[in-house]
Simulated scan of single mutants.
Amino acid sequence: MADERIALVTGANKGIGAAIAEGLAAQGLSVVVAARDAARGAETARRIGAQAVMLDVTDDASVTAAAKEVRDRFGRLDVLVNNAGISGGRSQAPGAVDLGTIRTIFETNLYGVIRVTEAFLPLLRAGTDARIINVSSGTGSLAWMTDPSHGFAVRGSMAGYPVSKTALNMLTVQYARALSGDGITVNAIAPGACATDFSAALGITLERTAAQGAAVVIDLATGTARPTASFLSDEGEVPW
């Protein structure tokens, strides 16, 4: 156990999160599947040879309990993947915004990341070559959204999901700056749109698989390169 790297992935019972957890387990890491649906999390963990913990990123008590459980099991954490996120559905068009929907999106996609990262920081500081990876989105890129030649610039506008990911990108930079002295790297990744329940909720049909989207996270978590304060995809750096 002392030589194994310990990784926790939030929202890991399905979709890209499950693919990330499976890929990390295949690389020899001891993986904790964190999911708010305890039964589905346990099922995924059994399937990929991992462990499971119940964790709802929107609930303080749940996150605190999960951090204690990981501390009791392992005493440290080497990789934290903040993957849990929601699309928020369709009530996000500027001019017809449901403010409750926006709050719900931010509670998971931004505040949830803060809540989890703060709770697990003591374990990451006790880890080796610790890495935090925040699953963002290319839709959070201001450069892409304002480039008339980019596909994102011609899509319908949304006041929730992409805004939450732009905020997550800035949060990534702030944590990277704050934790540089601890030797903890913090990066955001754009996995690309994949065929998951997440995209289905937005009415989008895709061919790219969750495993393809997960590959950049697995490489960042296990590779020798140690960038920090970066926004990355499987094609390289994404413009902020």
Results as ranks from 00 to 15, higher is better:
Asp60His: 07
Ser91Pro: 00
Arg46Lys: 15
Met54Val: 12
Gly85Ala: 15
Asn83Thr: 00
Gln51Tyr: 02
Ala67Lys: 05
Glu69Trp: 00
Asn82His: 10
Asp72Lys: 00
Ala84Val: 11
Glu69His: 10
Asp78Gln: 06
Ser87Arg: 00
Ile48Thr: 03
Ser91Ile: 00
Asp78Leu: 03
Val53Tyr: 08
Thr64Ile: 12
Ile102Glu: 06
Met54Asp: 12
Arg76Ser: 09
Thr64Asn: 12
Val57Gly: 00
Ala65His: 08
Gly100Gln: 12
Leu77Gly: 10
Arg73Glu: 12
Ile105Ala: 11
Leu77Val: 08
Ile105Asp: 09
Gln92Lys: 12
Gln51Arg: 15
Ala65Ile: 06
Ile48Gly: 02
Pro94Met: 14
Val53Trp: 08
Ala96Pro: 03
Ala50Val: 04
Asp60Gly: 00
Thr58Ile: 02
Gly49Ala: 09
Ile105Trp: 09
Ala84Tyr: 05
Ala93Leu: 14
Gly49Cys: 10
Thr101Met: 11
Asn83Ile: 01
Val63Ile: 11
Ala50Ser: 09
Ile102Tyr: 06
Pro94Trp: 14
Ala52Gly: 01
Ile48Arg: 00
Leu80Lys: 01
Arg103Ile: 05
Ser91Glu: 15
Val81Asn: 02
Gly100Glu: 13
Gly88Ala: 07
Val79Gly: 06
Phe74Ala: 12
Gln51Met: 06
Gln92Pro: 08
Asp56Ser: 07
Ser87Ile: 00
Asn82Ala: 08
Pro94Ala: 13
Ala50Thr: 02
Ser91Thr: 11
Ala50Asp: 03
Gly75Lys: 08
